[in-house]
Design a protein around this nucleic acid. Structure first.
Lengths: 140, 140
DNA sequence: TTATCTGCAAAAGGTTTGCAACTGA
DNA sequence: TCAGTTGCAAACCTTTTGCAGATAA
């Protein structure tokens, strides 16, 4: 996982700053290992660290998304964000606990040559239930 | 493309009804060939057909998503919906005009056996610019 | 016949904005 | 030093809900 220093450099490159509030929120997101709604992230960050404002959370998520360090997910009408290193990979998303596992090794093979246009990027997400959550699910 | 009659049957199977308002909105969505925000769909449907309410649009999109005939997309913070037949396929999404092209022939090969859990479903979307829009983009 | 659907108006809820004070680089 | 950031409160929208009347099946 990328160090805070590296992330700080990435932010600075784009004229963004890493304040102590942003660091608190960022660490909360990174260490959660999950995708979180802005509201959830705000709550968690408040619990784990100093006082931060919801506005700050929204603004940080926007910045992180812009520089490719966070990715939004739309699940059942709700928007979540996950910390997401900038290299190309895919995701396994647990629909129960919202944990994200990055999956590396993209063959790029499924960018068909007969695509009806120029492909800028693609996104592959697998949805299911992680091993922890499978055990907890009652067979019904 | 699925006929209205078929869609009506699918709706009825789940105790939903196809009213003339829903038919108007549905046809607008199907024939647009694009992903649309609820607001855009509402505007288009009003232009093309009789008077419909925005609430009706929201409720139809919810129903269609539930029975697998519409898919939501999250693009730059906005939620769009596309008509989407219920069989498994992928998408090419034009970031300029929001047109959607369905891509068939999924190898399923990228559901790795070493996935950290049970995969319920996956989703692969390609984003780029369709041939129409490439021509229009000024080289800058 | 009746469960479902409609549109409106109101409520709710999530997200953004303006601003004065603060702070990282 | 000063451009970028903060948190608050207010503004903004998008989405949902309640309801009485309409309608598909």
């Amino acid at each position: 996982m990328m160090t805070i220093q590296t992330i700080k450099s990435l932010l600075n490159e784009s004229n963004f700053r890493l304040t102590k509030e942003r660091e608190a929120v960022l660490e909360t997101l990174m260490h959660s290992g999950r995708m979180l709604t802005p509201g959830e992230l705000y709550q968690l960050a408040k619990e784990n660290h100093q006082r931060v404002g919801l506005t700050t959370v929204y603004r940080l998520l926007e910045v992180l998304t812009k520089i490719g360090l966070a990715t939004p997910f739309l699940i059942e009408g709700e928007i979540f964000y996950a910390y997401c290193p900038e290299d190309h990979h895919h995701h396994f998303v647990c629909l129960s606990c919202h944990r994200i596992k990055d999956i590396y090794g993209c063959s790029q093979a499924f960018e068909p040559e007969n695509a009806p246009g120029t492909v800028e990027y693609h996104r592959l997400d697998l949805f299911g239930h992680c091993q922890n959550c499978q055990e907890e699910i009652p067979t019904c």
